[in-house]
Amino acid sequence: MSDNTDLLIEKLVASHRAVTPFSPAPILLLSVMLLSAVAALFVLPLGIRTEWGAAALLKTGTLLLLTLTMLNLTLQLSGPQQVNWRQARGFWLLLLLSIGFLMGFTLQAPALSVSQATGVPSFWGCVSWVGFMGGGALLVLLRMFRRARPAQRQRLALALSCCAALLAASIYSLHCTVDAVSYLLTAYLLAVMLIVLSGWLCSRQLWHW
């Protein structure tokens, strides 16, 4: 009788073991590292650009800094507490650096009209690649953050969407040789907007309690 009681107690303890607290920082870091490696493998067949002028470096630097900014924002929004923006110094620093790089890229980038940018042969290839890889990254991030309890789920979903889209755009910029502001604001922005829209729609089905 006592053996059966002990066995029953052990089963109950095992089935009601305390849930490990959700730690967004290591989960986000691991996810981004794995996604970056996968995206890099997909961009290698396209080829890495060989000529890196000031505009190219500033373009890729801007995208990378924006990705880091969104990663920091994701960490800020992943908890149930309200964000204290006055103490979010890392976020503001990254945002200012992103703006600085973007301004430098605007000054160094070659002139290209919107019609010329949309007529570049690689335009839809850029939209498709960034959209496909960013969409896949978004699904992974949403899956990894399914246990998060954000105070505002739409904001977290938008932050995760921007992370996925900008990460894909940063990797693709290693291949892309079009260094015009108009191309960045058409091809890249279109892909990012599609991913962000998908993330917002997915957020309506997540994090209900």
Rank of each mutant, 00 (worst) to 15 (best):
A164S: 13
L158Q: 10
W129Q: 02
A159Y: 01
G125Y: 06
V32G: 00
M193I: 14
L71I: 11
Q87N: 12
V13E: 14
S15F: 07
Q152C: 08
S23P: 01
A157G: 15
I27E: 11
L30P: 00
S113N: 08
G135D: 10
Q82S: 14
P45K: 08
L201E: 10
R49E: 04
L57Y: 07
T5D: 12
R155Q: 13
L139P: 00
L156Y: 03
S23V: 05
E10Y: 03
L63E: 12
A151G: 05
D6P: 00
L158W: 06
L201F: 12
N4G: 01
I171T: 10
R155T: 02
I171E: 07
H208R: 15
G47D: 11
L65F: 11
V196K: 02
L41D: 04
P24R: 07
L112T: 12
V120T: 13
S161K: 01
L73D: 00
G100Q: 07
L158E: 08
A54K: 13
P45F: 05
A88T: 06
L65K: 01
V83G: 02
L29V: 13
A40V: 12
L35G: 00
G100A: 08
L138C: 03
S113Y: 04
S98H: 07
V38E: 01
L57F: 11
L96G: 09
P24W: 06
L112C: 10
M144H: 06
C163A: 05
S182T: 13
A168I: 08
L201D: 05
L167F: 04
L206E: 04
P21R: 13
L41A: 14
Q154R: 13
L194G: 05
F123N: 06
L189P: 00
W200N: 14
L167S: 03
W129T: 09
K11R: 15
L7I: 07
V83W: 05
M103W: 12
C202R: 08
L35M: 06
A55V: 09
Q154M: 02
A37W: 09
G104C: 09
A157Y: 01
T118S: 02
Q154F: 08
L12K: 06
A117V: 04
R89P: 00
R149E: 15
M33C: 10
C126V: 12
N72C: 09
V43R: 09
S122V: 14
L160K: 05
R143V: 03
L75N: 05
G199W: 02
S161F: 01
F91I: 08
N84L: 14
L141R: 03
